[in-house]
Amino acid sequence: MNEKIIQEYIKLGQNVDQVFLKQEMDWICEKLLKNIDRFQENFPSACTTNHIYRIKANDDWTNGFWTGMLWMAYQYTKNEAFYDIVMKNIKSFQQRLADHFVLDHHDIGFLYSPSIVMVYRDTQEKSLEKIIVEAADKLLNRFQEKGQFIQAWGQLGNPQEYRLIIDSLLNLPLLYEASKITNNPLYAHKADAHYQQVINHIIRSDYSTYHTFYFDVETGKPDHGATHQGFSDQSCWARGQAWAILGIPLHERITQQKNDESKWTHVFEYFIDKIPQDLIPYWDLCFDDTSHEPKDSSALAIVACGLMEAQKVGYRQDAQMIAKGMIGALSQTYTSSKYKDVEGLLMHGVYAYSENKGVDEENLWGDYFYMEALYRLLNPEWKTCW
């Protein structure tokens, strides 16, 4: 592993103190208040166009990140303006379930964990339990017995879509939450099965990761890995590697099954070995400083949260300090704190390069995980939505 990069992060992390964290949260909450004035009860699009989010209904896989940021802002400021919008958002998420509106995918966890679960853990409001369980039921309906995995996209059983993707590791906590609420182990058992299929097949022998992995629709046997958003089937999409770095210790913390420390360590080291000079990864880890390719700041924000989860389960003692350094690196030139006309928080992200979608723009998950990382550091005992 590139120890020089680790030491550079640790050096930067020494400057990430409580004063810094509060300053970052202050400007973020100020910007979110400004954005609320524009979006009202609607939602920002998944990514910006020319650094401005489009106004949308509750119809995308990313809307939970918006509500999650608003609730963190409420927890931090106690400003009722945040609370009022979150309560309206909750009604919208409840209606989306009732209408089964754009829910034929696996990202139901991304929708309902940062929104409903986060508020539930903070308030213990019993009426939210029904929403959580209903959302988990919709996710569970995508579980394929042949192959023992949750199908990511498309019509169930479609041979062209008989696959999982690495992002799914962050959808599983919703199932574990439903198991706790209902005392029904089925949700957790299916989540466990899917998790095993992800880490057993999507991680390559060199500890890079495929974005997506296919199974045989007739037999359920593992078939082949591929990409959907990475540079190629053989490359390593940066955000995909980041999902693994967060998803593995997250699963071990939830399940109390510490089995994958060695695998996580190698996956993390692969990521670190591909970090360029300015400490921010390119959108695919196959690129280096000679490539002139766009960065994906969101991948580093996700990894920072993953390191804090890793410290919780005892993977490495310096994990939190490395995470602080990553946040320090992002704060220097990758946030919009000095740009009033930029609506997002974390600049220089990539949504889907091959579709020319959100390239060198802000995106909701980048904003969310940057803010989550800050709030984790500010409140070490805070219960995340995962």
Rank of each mutant, 00 (worst) to 15 (best):
K4W: 08
I5S: 08
E8C: 14
D26T: 08
L32G: 06
L33C: 12
R38M: 04
R38V: 05
F43H: 13
C47R: 05
D59H: 05
N63R: 08
T67N: 11
L70V: 02
A73Q: 08
Y74K: 00
K78S: 10
N79S: 15
E80M: 05
V86L: 05
F93C: 05
Q94Y: 11
A98Q: 15
H106E: 11
I108G: 06
F110R: 03
I116W: 04
V117K: 02
D122K: 00
T123W: 12
S127V: 10
L128H: 06
A135F: 05
L139Q: 08
L139H: 03
Q144P: 07
Q148K: 15
I150W: 00
W153M: 01
G154A: 08
Q155D: 14
G157L: 03
N158V: 08
P159L: 05
Y162L: 02
I165L: 10
A178F: 07
A178Y: 08
S179I: 00
P185R: 09
H189E: 15
D192A: 10
Y195P: 06
Y195A: 03
H201I: 01
R204S: 03
H211L: 01
Y214V: 01
E218R: 03
K221Q: 08
P222F: 00
T227P: 13
T227H: 13
Q229Y: 11
C236V: 11
R239Q: 06
G240F: 02
A244P: 12
L246Y: 15
I248D: 01
H251G: 00
D260M: 13
E261G: 13
E261S: 14
H266Y: 07
V267P: 15
F268G: 00
D273K: 12
K274G: 01
P276K: 00
I280D: 02
P281C: 05
H292M: 10
E293M: 13
E293W: 06
K295C: 01
V313H: 13
R316E: 04
Q317E: 15
Q320P: 00
G325M: 02
G325V: 00
M326A: 06
K338A: 05
Y339L: 02
E343T: 03
A352P: 02
Y353D: 01
S354T: 11
N356I: 09
V359C: 07
N363I: 03
D367C: 12
Y368F: 14
